[in-house]
Simulated assay, not measured.
Amino acid sequence: MSDDGERERLRRLEEKIARAKGEAKGPTPTGDISQANVAWQMVTELVAGIVIGLGIGLGLDALLGTKPLMLVLFILVGFAAGVRVMMRTAADVQEKQAAKAAEDKRD
Results as ranks from 00 to 15, higher is better:
R12G: 04
R12E: 14
R12S: 08
R12V: 05
L13R: 15
L13D: 11
E14N: 11
E14A: 15
E15C: 05
E15K: 12
E15S: 13
K16I: 04
K16R: 12
A18W: 07
A18C: 06
A18V: 11
R19I: 06
A20H: 09
A20L: 15
K21V: 04
K21D: 10
K21L: 11
K21Y: 07
K21M: 08
G22V: 00
G22N: 10
G22D: 05
G22Q: 11
G22L: 04
G22H: 08
A24Y: 09
K25M: 10
K25Q: 08
G26T: 06
G26E: 07
G26R: 09
T28E: 15
P29Q: 05
T30V: 08
T30I: 04
G31W: 07
G31F: 12
D32L: 13
I33Q: 11
I33E: 15
S34Q: 12
S34N: 13
Q35H: 11
Q35M: 07
A36P: 03
A36S: 13
V38N: 11
V38F: 04
A39I: 06
A39H: 05
A39G: 09
A39S: 10
W40K: 11
W40T: 07
Q41P: 00
T44G: 15
T44V: 12
T44S: 14
T44N: 12
T44F: 09
T44R: 12
E45L: 14
E45D: 07
E45Q: 11
E45V: 02
L46G: 10
L46T: 05
L46A: 13
V47D: 04
V47W: 06
V47P: 00
A48S: 14
G49E: 06
G49M: 06
I50H: 03
V51Y: 01
I52D: 01
I52P: 00
I52Y: 00
G53Q: 05
G55T: 05
I56W: 02
G57V: 02
L58Y: 12
L58F: 14
G59D: 02
G59E: 01
A62C: 03
L63M: 04
L63P: 00
L63W: 05
G65Q: 00
G65F: 02
G65I: 01
T66I: 04
T66E: 05
P68D: 06
P68S: 04
L69M: 00
M70I: 01
L71E: 02
L71M: 06
V72C: 01
L73I: 12
L73N: 00
F74M: 12
I75P: 00
I75E: 03
I75S: 02
I75L: 13
L76F: 11
V77L: 14
V77P: 02
G78E: 02
G78D: 01
G78M: 01
F79R: 02
F79Y: 09
A80R: 08
A80S: 13
A81V: 09
G82L: 04
V83I: 15
V83T: 01
R84T: 08
R84E: 04
R84M: 09
M86S: 09
M86R: 07
M86N: 07
M87Q: 15
M87L: 14
R88T: 10
R88C: 02
R88K: 13
R88G: 07
T89P: 00
A91I: 10
A91V: 08
D92E: 13
D92W: 03
Q94M: 12
Q94I: 10
Q94R: 15
E95D: 13
E95R: 14
Q97D: 13
Q97A: 12
A98K: 12
A99W: 07
A99T: 10
A99H: 09
K100Q: 14
K100G: 02
